[in-house]
Nucleic acid binder design. Sequence first.
DNA 1: ACAAACTTTCACAAATTACTGAAATTATTG
DNA 2: CAATAATTTCAGTAATTTGTGAAAGTTTGT
Lengths: 176, 176
Amino acid sequence: METVDQVKEKFILHWGEMGSLWGINRTMAQIHALLFISDKPLSANEIMDELAISRGNVSMALRELIAWGIASRVHVKGERREYYTTEKDVWTMFRMIARERKKREVDPTINVLRDSVAQLNAIPDANVAYEREQLQSLLNFFETSVQVYEDLETHNPNSILKLLGTALRVKSAISS
Amino acid sequence: METVDQVKEKFILHWGEMGSLWGINRTMAQIHALLFISDKPLSANEIMDELAISRGNVSMALRELIAWGIASRVHVKGERREYYTTEKDVWTMFRMIARERKKREVDPTINVLRDSVAQLNAIPDANVAYEREQLQSLLNFFETSVQVYEDLETHNPNSILKLLGTALRVKSAISS
DNA sequence: ACAAACTTTCACAAATTACTGAAATTATTG
DNA sequence: CAATAATTTCAGTAATTTGTGAAAGTTTGT
């Protein structure tokens, strides 16, 4: 039987690994995990000690987490030092991440694709057809994804997923 | 005005950058982009020349792309060397990627979370409640995501997204 | 305004990841 | 089966990313 601390550590380490599979570095993901399961905000010192990482690293990782909109500074009354916490609601957290990834990855990609398709359209040569078609399909995919993202952004995710489930059951019933 | 080759190159370079923001390395993503917009399959030599990378690198990247299920070998009649192509349908391509990421990232995470929650449940101590609650929420999120993924897996994505759109419009109409 | 407490920055170091090229392996042809 | 063609592997190297710690900067209290 594991202790609470062992369970926490296992989760933090795993989350760190997952982070590095995404674009987020290990330390950043570990700090996020630590704050996420902490009942109360932690100071930079506590984070340093808990994860055995340097002061500078904690500072940089927190700055990034804050830039992603999933961590924030909190002032604890009568305390001089800063404390940090994360977004505690899982859905909101993933919505913030989605927003940031859209901005950093999807939007620039859509720009490149639109531009490319436009350039290819300006070339009269018929043997450009295949390239144009492929890029157009990719563009359609990303545009649809953005559409779905925007729907999720403005609606409560749970209700949407319930609707989706219902829609699927109806569809199955009709097509079978 | 850009030539076809300039447009292709811009797309390939951009896709390479995007790849490295995901877990995919730059070369792998570039090869994928090149094959994706190529009308016909390409040989390892052609890929080497086009992207100015080494033979070994091409070989390893192709192996990985094949492992992800988004590229495949094709035999060209009367040709001795191997040719390669990618999945050309965008939706299928992203479905393959989703399948692989689920296997590599989501499934192991769900296992860790289930295990962690179970361990915490075995600890009678009441001050474990917060940790358990947070991990349980994360677990719920991932389980719901898998559910959606499996729905998408077994249905035509376009039809689902249309249904989702309809569902949202209905919901908006009701709640407004 | 000074000192103490704390945070941020950044040059350098360490660690990790990606790439090369030549040797080894595998497949094809006469 | 020997020769040729093509592919794969992998040890070493290069490039990139991440982390450290000390100095610089900032804030707070007296």
